[in-house]
Structure formats: C-alpha cells, structure tokens
Design a protein around this nucleic acid. Structure first.
Length: 260
DNA sequence: ATGGTGGCACCGCCA
C-alpha cells in the first residue's frame, strides 16, 4: 500500500500534473495541500474518471486540503476540534487496509511568515492544537498516518544551508520542538526510517533558481503511528515533478506499507 | 545585493 503527500499550490493550475503523476504512481492515497479553491470548484470528476475517490476541505484563494484514494473514505472530519479557525488545513478520513481501518490525515501546517510575527504565534498555537487532537485520534485509530506540508525542517540535514537559515522561520527551535512533540506521541518520520541521499529536500523556492541549485528544505513529511511503523518498507521523495513545466514549489513524498 | 517567483484576485497578500 502506498501513501503520498504533495503540496500542489493551486489544484486548478496543477490538476493535469496531479492526474499525470497518479497515472505514473497509482498510490492508494494521495494527500494534497494548498488546493486554493472553494469546495464547489473541486474537480471530483477528474478523479472519479481515473478510478479514485476524494474528500476535501476547500477554501477560496488560500489553503485547502484533500485525500484522493482508491477506496472510499469514511468518518471524514475537517479542522482541529476546539481550534476556531476559518483556514482549511486539516482533513481526516478512514480507509480500509489489510490490517484493518487506516486513518489518513492530510495537513497543511501554517507557514509562520517570520519568527515573532502574528502568523508565527498562530503557527505555534496551531501545532499545539494539532498535538492535542492527535493524542485522541491515535487512541481511536491506532493505525494512523498524517501526511502533509508541516512547514518545518526538523533537523539541519533537512536544510540546504543550515548556517544561512539558522533561527529563521521553518527551522527555528520552537517550530522544531513542536515537530518533536508530535514524534513524542509515538509518531515516526517515515523518511528517516531508511538511509536517504544527502541533501534530500521536498520544497525549493521559486526564486533564484533554487531547484537548479538544490537550495531546498525538507518540510513535507509522512508521520506513522507505532502500529504502522513496522509495516513501512520504503519512503522516498519524487523529485521529478519539480522539474516539470509550471511546477508546484513542492514535490511528492511517498511511503510504502507492506502487509505480510 | 534586503532582491527574486508564483498563484490569486484585484494590485496587495501569502507563500
């Protein structure tokens, strides 16, 4: 079973690329972030036409998340309970798996703009609310995978130039601590369960030829619960779509679960 | 060198 995440920075613009990618990578679930479209504009038919189901939480202009899946999802929920927020950043759904129900969450964590800004404070509060919610979700759903754009590079090895980025938003210590707090719930960073190439990143700024220089960050992650961790047999970043025409600034990350 | 690019919606905001 394969699970993937991709911040596509406008589903309207990137739909052909998402369909091409799914044709080449027929994963069981693809979590999308930054749809940037309202619910009523979600292109459901494009996905049903190629044999996928979808659940989504859309928003005009900003944010928006979805789970595209081979099997229909059930018990779908949106947003973080108790965290009053018009921004659509979370959707959770339950998919069947050979081991039983599998909770799949697509998350678009706040960017934070700049350390000390209002948006940065919002980001940290948002992570605290995510942490509280996941505590409960993990009890209800022992097989849980939360995939998305975390807007946090967890360690210096996830940063192309750690000295230049030191203390900046996306790498600051409070953000990294918020990420570690999630891991302390028993979640594992699937990518780091395996040996990986040096300088592996999932996002490159559009500016200054960042992709060409591999000046990126690893901020898109797949976190797996304790029950799923031993089933994970691979996790890879697919750099290819970042080199396509009119790309997203992020590229997909894919985890493989093997049920023996 | 305090820039640059991209998407959206309306020319600034967000990333």
């Amino acid at each position: 079973m394969k699970l993937a995440t991709w911040n596509i920075n406008s589903l309207r613009v990137r739909l052909p690329q998402v369909l091409d990618w799914l044709a080449q990578n027929p994963v069981d679930a693809l979590c999308l972030q930054e749809l940037k479209l309202a619910d009523e504009h979600f292109p459901l038919e494009a996905f049903t036409d190629i044999g996928y189901h979808a659940v989504w939480a859309g928003q005009k202009t900003y944010n928006g998340v979805a789970v595209i899946s081979r099997e229909p999802g059930c018990d779908t929920t949106r947003n973080l309970p108790g965290f009053d927020d018009p921004q659509q950043r979370v959707i959770a759904t339950t998919l069947p798996s050979p081991a039983g129900p599998l909770r799949v969450i697509s998350a678009y964590c706040p960017n934070g703009q700049a350390v000390g800004s209002d948006k940065y404070e919002y980001k940290l509060r948002w992570f605290a609310a995510l942490h509280e919610w996941l505590k409960n979700e993990l009890v209800a759903h022992p097989r849980l995978a939360i995939l998305g754009d975390y807007n946090v590079a967890p360690a210096d090895e996830d940063v192309h130039d750690p000295a230049k980025w030191e203390g900046d938003v996306l790498v600051s210590e409070p953000e990294r601590q918020a990420f570690r707090d999630l891991l302390d719930l028993g979640l594992s960073d699937a990518f780091r369960l395996f040996p990986q190439p040096e300088k592996s990143f999932s996002w490159w700024d559009y500016r200054r030829f960042a992709f060409r220089r591999n000046a990126g960050l690893r901020i898109d992650h797949i976190l797996l619960s304790e029950a799923l961790r031993p089933l994970c047999t691979a996790c890879e970043i697919d750099k290819a779509p970042r080199a396509w025409e009119q790309p997203s600034d992020h590229t997909p990350v894919v985890a493989t679960l093997t049920f023996s």
